[in-house]
């Protein structure tokens, strides 16, 4: 069912929703971009509909809502481990089609691969999606190539046109919030074409490891890890134990996002590192996104949001790398 509302009407609904849900959405952080006097768009708790950034692609993906950057697993006292308190308020996330697909990939790893992850599941099961309309394909997007441009997996769909909001309700429980809205046919229109295309080679196999195409990345990549931190599907983490400075007998174990591009990702105690070369790390990442995840789970990991391309300070393009691989496989280069 669809409705249209003006901003004021929706504000009231939003107030009601906030009683039940913590709402996360892309938000503009003024002057918080990497460079002076530039802005940042990332996910944060939203208190007002006007705080939602509808027009720009968020620099970071929504994954941080369900996979916090730093997450305390438990606290230690002298001989006890104690789990942190858990807030059981439900969560609404405003996000785009590609990002909904990205969460499915995280689910695959965190809920299915080797059993259920307790901390992920607790957060994930509270989450409902609010699909945001993509009015246009953003720079570097290639969702159509990755078949993530469309989704049916959402509870609400919202698009904003000036001061009017159009809402589609797919899940009944939300109908009660919208009784004052004007009934209207509302459904998302999805992106059908991107400027960027990524031609994922079908006959890829590990013989491509030996291709010289990885070599250039050894000198171009600076191993900063931005491609991983902005990615909606990268879910690797590292465990950290710390003790509190003022009481060394207490501390906590936490997990923190990890990047397969950053030094130390494969370093074992004693110092042996398996992928020192940045070209090898690039290969590891690219193959994971468009080859081996698919081999294991039956669909590609990459969702084509293009954030890695947006973020790379060295202008390394993931989609271009995929296209180069395709040419190698076809024998064109």
């Amino acid at each position: 069912m669809g409705f249209s509302l003006n901003l004021t009407e929706f504000k009231n609904i939003f107030e009601e929703l906030k009683k039940e849900y913590t709402v996360y959405a892309p938000k503009l952080f003024k002057n918080k971009g990497t460079y002076s006097d530039t802005n940042m768009v990332r996910y944060d708790e939203i208190h007002d509909i006007e705080d939602i950034e509808f027009d720009q692609k968020s620099h970071y993906s929504p994954k941080e809502v369900i996979l916090p950057i730093t997450q305390t697993l438990f606290y230690f006292t002298e001989d006890e481990v104690i789990e942190p308190k858990f807030n059981d308020k439900k969560i609404l996330i405003f996000l785009r089609s590609c990002d909904i697909h990205a969460v499915k990939r995280l689910d695959e790893i965190y809920l299915k691969n080797g059993g259920e992850d307790y901390y992920y599941r607790r957060l994930r099961e509270k989450v409902k999606f609010v699909l945001m309309q993509c009015e246009k394909s953003f720079e570097n997007c290639f969702c159509v190539s990755m078949n993530t441009n469309e989704t049916k997996d959402y509870s609400l769909f919202i698009k904003r046109k000036g001061d009017i909001l159009f809402i589609e309700v797919k899940e009944e429980e939300f109908l009660s919030y919208l009784h004052n809205g004007k009934s209207e046919e509302v459904s998302p229109s999805f992106i059908e074409k991107n400027e960027v295309t990524a031609n994922v080679p079908k006959d890829l196999d590990i013989s491509i490891f030996k291709s010289p195409i990885w070599e250039e990345y050894a000198s171009r990549c600076i191993a900063c890890g931005r491609c991983n931190t902005v990615c909606g599907t990268c879910g690797c983490f590292t465990m950290q134990d710390i003790f509190y400075k003022d009481n060394v007998n207490t501390g906590e174990r936490r997990r923190v996002w990890a990047s397969c591009q950053v030094d130390g990702f494969t370093t074992m105690a004693g110092g042996h590192e398996f992928r020192k070369d940045k070209g090898d790390r690039m290969r590891f990442k690219v193959m994971h996104k468009i080859y081996d995840f698919n081999k294991r789970f039956g669909y590609h990991m990459c969702v084509g949001c293009g954030r890695c391309d947006d973020a790379c300070p060295e202008y390394i393009s993931f989609s271009n790398c995929v296209n180069k691989l395709n040419k190698v496989v076809k024998g064109e280069i």
Binding site: N31, K32, T34, Y35, H59, Y60, C224, N228
Partner: peptide, 14 residues
């Protein structure tokens, strides 16, 4: 502000 420029998660901001 060099730290801000190098941070991959925007943990550092201006």
């Amino acid at each position: 502000g060099e730290c801000v420029g190098k941070c991959p998660t925007s943990a550092w901001t201006r």
